[in-house]
Design a protein around this nucleic acid. Structure first.
Lengths: 229, 229
DNA sequence: TCTTTAAATGTTATTTTAACACTTAATTGT
DNA sequence: ACAATTAAGTGTTAAAATAACATTTAAAGA
């Protein structure tokens, strides 16, 4: 019988979070060293089980908050993974989410307690279970998102240099982008505010700082466009 | 405690299938009239519960096969829905899949047994639970897919007219497309084989039939491209 | 004042896209 | 037989977007 609630099997549902950050070294993800069996001591995404009275989005937020102390974070559901033996302990279905966070804003203490560490996406160690698979899926999704919607507000500090934004796009798309073409395309989106302020730390000339125009940025987030670098 | 398998809640996991088809009237979806409570008699997507020993993809395939008799169908996981009260009987998380099928190939008898019916996407009745939401999500996804990868092989009969392919694109994207521009773009993809055969049923002049070059089609399916109509 | 360093800035050729209308092949009706 | 009908088939051009490319500038430090 297809549709009997009472006889249907129940399963464990987990959420796992792929947490992206960005700093001067490029695109990073946050991993934790598992402190329980199985695979204790191995690197892993941050995860937890869904609770009965909780929706998946909230479970993902809770997991992220538990490990990083962060709230109000950009998250998106990625995919649901259900291979029978993906978790060797017990059949567990996992819904993956990815988050974009500003590395400067996270709670370093919490991260230390959980033995968490930022890794460059190009230098990620072998992860437990099917987390490698989730990560590569998340990177593909982030690349796609970057070509269809603006990115940066979630990952950069409030004030940033154009060269930082360029580097962010280059690390996400994993390719070189012509500086002049990049600037004119970004400017055509009309989502940046150029400040009078300069950052003098990185060059003698100094470079202007920018912020995102949050309203225009959010408007662009809603309507997909194609931005080809 | 975040990670205790033994104390974590278990939940019911369902799959629901959004089944797209295409005929002379345009893009359609297959719905069933529920023959059990709750919401008996209302229109609904096809669904079923995940079994303990089954992966989600297989559950979606099983549900589709049960209602249509079809096998070897193009399906993609869409999204996982977890609102607390989305199913009034019991907390149920549902993983939605969408399928593209050739209407001509389905098993009409099975569909009759289950009181299934094809609806034009523009004339879909109110659906149970959050199925309306799933459907609009699926349409968005299908539109996106259509702009990034070829579509048609899964939905059209083996031999088809160029005008059918055009109409398929127009119904998916819900807009008029210039015939000449369409043909030159489709030809530039190099996925069609023009047959010597003509279909004489629709016009005095007759129109050439085409098939997809399956190998080239599948190759394009893997690498996203942007096709702007 | 000369050197150094990253920042800032525009132009042009190429490619892609969008807009647009007439001819053709065959059948049907007179 | 020929005129009318119907959907099929076919190219050109203007506009827009993209990609390629190099020099100048502002300030600090030697």
């Amino acid at each position: 019988m297809l549709n009997s609630y009472s006889t249907a099997d129940k399963v464990l549902l987990a959420v796992d979070c792929i947490i992206f950050g960005f700093d001067e070294d490029g695109l990073k993800i946050l991993l934790i060293k598992r402190d329980f069996e199985p695979e204790k001591g191995k690197w892993s995404l941050m995860g937890g089980f869904l609770r009965k009275e909780e929706v998946l989005d909230d479970a993902a937020i809770r997991v992220l908050n538990t490990y990083t102390g962060l709230q109000d974070i950009y998250m998106e559901q990625l995919y649901t993974y259900s291979e029978i033996d993906r978790d060797p302990v017990e059949r567990t279905i996992s819904v993956a989410y990815y988050a974009l966070i500003n590395i400067e804003n996270h709670n370093a203490e919490l991260i230390q307690n959980y033995h968490a560490k930022w890794f460059s996406v190009s230098e990620v160690p072998k992860l437990i279970f099917d987390h490698d698979n989730m990560l590569s899926h998340a990177i593909r999704r982030l690349r796609y998102r970057t070509s269809m919607r603006p990115v940066g507000f979630e990952l950069l500090p409030e004030k940033f240099k154009m060269s930082q934004l360029l580097k962010l796009y280059e690390s996400i798309l994993d390719k070189q982008i012509d500086k002049r073409n990049f600037i004119s395309k970004i400017n055509s989106l009309d989502i940046l505010i150029k400040l009078d302020e300069k950052d003098m730390t990185s060059s003698r000339k100094g470079s202007y700082l920018y912020t995102f125009d949050k309203e225009k940025y959010d408007a662009k987030l809603l309507n997909n466009f194609a931005l080809n670098f």
